[in-house]
Deep mutational scan, measured.
Amino acid sequence: MEVVDPQQLGMFTEGELMSVGMDTFIHRIDSTEVIYQPRRKRAKLIGKYLMGDLLGEGSYGKVKEVLDSETLCRRAVKILKKKKLRRIPNGEANVKKEIQLLRRLRHKNVIQLVDVLYNEEKQKMYMVMEYCVCGMQEMLDSVPEKRFPVCQAHGYFCQLIDGLEYLHSQGIVHKDIKPGNLLLTTGGTLKISDLGVAEALHPFAADDTCRTSQGSPAFQPPEIANGLDTFSGFKVDIWSAGVTLYNITTGLYPFEGDNIYKLFENIGKGSYAIPGDCGPPLSDLLKGMLEYEPAKRFSIRQIRQHSWFRKKHPPAEAPVPIPPSPDTKDRWRSMTVVPYLEDLHGADEDEDLFDIEDDIIYTQDFTVPGQVPEEEASHNGQRRGLPKAVCMNGTEAAQLSTKSRAEGRAPNPARKACSASSKIRRLSACKQQ
């Protein structure tokens, strides 16, 4: 084909351009004929944790799935940006308080904090938690009735009371019990989460009196709706648990309003109706937990002794299953770290194939690490110290990083047969305790 000078094309009309061969290198194709290559998922490591896909996002930050490269346990990490926390009232204080509380709590029905990582340079905090497959609110939203069968609701409620009793025994008032803060594992274990607005009572406090509340409006008791200066913290949790039980068994809320002012007005009056299909035992329990006067409201001991709580409820309806993943529609909620794991395991070791967030990740503290002497050669063979940054567990980050890069360049065919977990650990520049 004859090559045409581009400067001469402006002298031709459209018809003349076609005659000189423009149609031979300008093609129009339908979008259905285009085959897009999927974007390669680059592996990203935060300390010893391999990052997966997004699980959810809230006002405080994002939650992603991660894999512990040492234990191969599935975890969830809450990623918090200090810049964003400053824009939220009491944001930083709530996060630090939640970390302090979770560090000393150990119960099967309370979410466990596994690790805390802090990135000084990017001003990011990573709260590594045990993995929960789904939230209770997500399960309720997945069915038209917006409720659980009585047998399933009873099982979840009993676990909620177990976890709540443990928190109260530790002198902690949750203040925000609701389905949105109750998570579930694949085995059906309920976990109380989000202790950001919780309050730890003084060890020598005479009672459970509280003065502040930041919980969700629909789950607040009349004493808070009416603006009382002080109130019983434990009875606030009992009320919120009662509203939660009402919601998961009926699909409704005892109090509603077009806006928060109308909602608080209705809560302050204390008038509500219980659907007739709840039955006398459940209705009596709800009335005891939603008692207007805090002094007359049920205690956890009274809830445990109630006939509806103690009764064994046979399954009359099919239980609400864990819904498919909202993004991938995966009904099994498979591990989202698998594509990243395959990338590390299947590809040659190259620095361009993975990302390490930083050479140094500070753990379990908000301060910069200490310094240790770096050896410097002298005339008599002895070495003197220069400062060298280290990880919180004493690992020399720069030395590990250099060693990792040197190993990656060394030709050794046997290394390709290593397991995925050992490869992740070798790529991680800074081991965590």
Rank of each mutant, 00 (worst) to 15 (best):
V3D: 00
L9P: 11
M11G: 11
T13W: 01
E14W: 02
G15W: 01
S19K: 13
T24F: 11
Y36C: 07
Q37L: 07
P38N: 02
R39M: 14
R40F: 10
K44D: 04
G47A: 11
K48P: 11
L50T: 09
G52F: 15
G58Y: 00
K62T: 15
V63C: 11
E65H: 11
S69W: 01
C73E: 15
K78L: 01
I88L: 09
P89G: 01
E92M: 00
N94A: 01
N94F: 03
K96L: 03
K96I: 06
E98Y: 01
L102H: 15
R103S: 06
R103H: 14
K108V: 05
N109D: 02
V114L: 01
E121W: 01
K124Y: 09
M125G: 06
V128I: 15
Y131V: 04
V133D: 13
V133H: 12
G135I: 15
Q137Y: 04
Q137T: 14
M139L: 08
S142Y: 07
S142F: 11
P144G: 06
E145W: 11
V150H: 09
L160F: 02
D162H: 03
L164N: 01
L164C: 08
H168W: 02
H168A: 09
P179G: 01
G180E: 07
L182D: 01
T189W: 08
L190R: 01
L190G: 01
S193N: 15
V197C: 13
E199L: 05
A200W: 04
L201N: 08
A205I: 12
D207R: 13
C210I: 07
R211L: 08
R211M: 11
R211G: 13
T212M: 05
S216L: 01
P221M: 02
P222Q: 03
G227P: 07
S232Y: 05
V243Q: 08
V243C: 06
L245M: 02
L245H: 00
Y261G: 05
I267L: 03
I267H: 12
K269N: 09
K269G: 12
P275D: 15
D277S: 05
C278F: 04
P280N: 15
L282M: 01
L286E: 01
L286I: 10
E291P: 01
E293S: 06
R301P: 06
R304F: 01
Q305Y: 13
S307D: 12
K312G: 15
H313E: 11
P315V: 08
E317N: 14
P319V: 04
P319W: 02
P321L: 08
I322C: 08
D327T: 14
D330S: 12
D330I: 10
R331D: 09
M335F: 10
L344G: 04
G346V: 04
D348W: 14
E351I: 09
F354P: 11
D355W: 14
D355I: 08
I356S: 05
D359V: 06
T363A: 04
Q364R: 07
Q371L: 12
V372S: 12
E374S: 12
E374G: 07
E376R: 11
H379V: 12
N380E: 12
R383A: 12
R384W: 10
K388R: 13
C391H: 12
T402C: 10
K403Q: 15
A406E: 12
E407G: 03
E407A: 13
R409G: 09
P411F: 05
N412E: 13
P413A: 12
A414W: 15
K416S: 13
A420L: 15
S422E: 12
R425D: 15
R426S: 13
S428L: 04
S428C: 11
Q432G: 15
